[in-house]
Amino acid sequence: MRPASLILALTLAAAPPAAQACGGSFSGFVADLEREAVSRGHDPAAARRFFSGIRQSPSVLKADRAQGVFQKPFIDFARNLISASRLKQGQAKSGQYDAVFDRIERTYGVNRGVLLAFWAFETDYGGFQGNFNTANALVTLSHDCRRPELFRPQVFAALELYERGAFDPATTTGAWAGEIGMVQMLPRDIIESGVDADGDGRVSLKTSAPDALTSGAAMLSSFGWRAGEPWLQEVRVPAGMDWSQSGVDVSKPVRDWEAMGVSARSGNLSHGLTASLILPQGHKGPAFLAYPNFNVYFDWNQSFTYVLTAAYFATRLEGAPVFDARAPETGLSGADMKSLQRRLQARGHDVGKIDGILGAGTRAAVQKEQARLGLPADAWPTPALLSRL
């Protein structure tokens, strides 16, 4: 469903100059990968065996270009992913693996709800882990010129796993973007954070829930997860506050938000921390305070809507009530969102790809234009904004 933790690839050590090459003959590209692998110190015979059966995967490219689900607004997206069945099953899994979660929380400080939510969304608690050939997927996406710098390092990580006897290029399968196992980890993540939690001598992310959950927790910990701190809390907001202060780029002490009239919908706000005010569908829709741990989610997945939904579901699994949808203003269709992005781009805003998805760049541009036009600057694009532009 998602390119899990692809941001890790951006932090890897610089590769040889050829590492940025993409496109051209696929067979020639694979031959270049094999030569580069040997230059990196991989065993020539192992590299030859690993790359000998690699095939380009049209189905991977199709999946990469068909992520329309992320065009849905938060309320629809969350209601689509969070069902009574998923919630009930999550609660059952929490009990089934209670000792595992207790050990994870003691060791890594990652709450069980956080891991259960990822487990649910990524593979439906391990029920569907993807049937794409992982080696083919990674090489295909490396050859494709959209994001080769993200996927190419993962090819060499998969080769390293193969040399360790932990990966079979012919039979290892997973998601279309190369993630493997119950919580969907990329090869580099497995090398850096894989944990043999069940003590059988192997890191088995596809068949061992303790291994998968503990490895996921280790990865979140490496991203900077802060033990004992919250990640997301639903709040109530007063009418007429300065909406330009909302968004993940603005962080304030919680007491400052409280002074502005923000209050917890249930429980208490976490004083002593900073937080951002999140209005996924504008000032008339649901509202959340996102604490520092929320930012760690973006190292797992870079979709704002996915991250917010996963973080919210984690709170539900730990007892939070269903969010108050309130009455958000009507948003834009996918076609209208693309039209908006073009108009924003024409005004000099960097909105990234024209894809109809309300990502971080589009939200920032919308908020700036709303402020310029005297509209509530809540980063939620409406037909009225589109008309004004």
Score class of each variant (00 low, 15 high):
residue 94 S to K: 14
residue 95 G to L: 15
residue 164 R to G: 08
residue 118 F to N: 10
residue 93 K to A: 11
residue 109 G to P: 06
residue 103 R to W: 13
residue 183 V to E: 09
residue 77 F to I: 01
residue 172 T to R: 10
residue 129 Q to P: 11
residue 127 G to Y: 04
residue 101 F to Y: 15
residue 137 A to M: 07
residue 151 F to V: 04
residue 199 G to L: 02
residue 93 K to P: 02
residue 91 Q to I: 13
residue 112 R to Q: 13
residue 122 E to N: 08
residue 121 F to D: 04
residue 199 G to D: 07
residue 102 D to V: 13
residue 172 T to S: 15
residue 114 V to Q: 00
residue 175 A to T: 08
residue 166 A to N: 03
residue 155 V to R: 02
residue 90 G to F: 13
residue 129 Q to Y: 09
residue 133 N to C: 11
residue 195 V to E: 12
residue 188 R to D: 09
residue 117 A to M: 00
residue 126 G to L: 10
residue 199 G to F: 02
residue 79 R to H: 14
residue 149 E to R: 14
residue 104 I to L: 09
residue 128 F to A: 13
residue 160 E to T: 07
residue 139 V to G: 04
residue 149 E to H: 11
residue 195 V to L: 05
residue 177 A to M: 03
residue 117 A to H: 01
residue 151 F to W: 07
residue 110 V to C: 09
residue 201 G to W: 07
residue 173 T to D: 03
residue 133 N to F: 11
residue 168 D to Y: 09
residue 137 A to E: 08
residue 93 K to G: 01
residue 141 L to I: 03
residue 181 G to Y: 06
residue 108 Y to E: 12
residue 186 L to F: 06
residue 160 E to D: 07
residue 190 I to Q: 10
residue 81 L to T: 03
residue 180 I to D: 10
residue 136 N to I: 03
residue 173 T to R: 14
residue 89 Q to Y: 15
residue 156 F to E: 02
residue 144 D to V: 00
residue 168 D to W: 12
residue 155 V to H: 01
residue 143 H to C: 02
residue 145 C to E: 03
residue 127 G to M: 11
residue 137 A to R: 05
residue 157 A to Q: 01
residue 82 I to Q: 01
residue 180 I to G: 12
residue 77 F to K: 00
residue 191 I to V: 12
residue 159 L to K: 04
residue 131 N to C: 00
residue 79 R to Q: 14
residue 167 F to D: 08
residue 94 S to I: 04
residue 200 D to C: 06
residue 162 Y to M: 13
residue 199 G to H: 06
residue 165 G to I: 05
residue 99 A to I: 05
residue 190 I to P: 01
residue 88 K to S: 15
residue 198 D to W: 09
residue 188 R to K: 05
residue 163 E to F: 11
residue 153 P to Y: 11
residue 147 R to V: 00
residue 95 G to M: 09
residue 148 P to N: 02
residue 146 R to M: 02
residue 95 G to T: 06
residue 182 M to L: 14
residue 93 K to D: 12
residue 177 A to V: 02
residue 121 F to L: 15
residue 92 A to W: 12
residue 101 F to R: 04
residue 121 F to I: 11
residue 127 G to W: 02
residue 84 A to C: 00
residue 116 L to H: 06
residue 102 D to L: 13
residue 151 F to C: 04
residue 119 W to H: 12
residue 81 L to H: 08
residue 196 D to G: 05
residue 147 R to E: 05
residue 200 D to V: 02
residue 171 T to K: 14
residue 159 L to A: 04
residue 101 F to P: 10
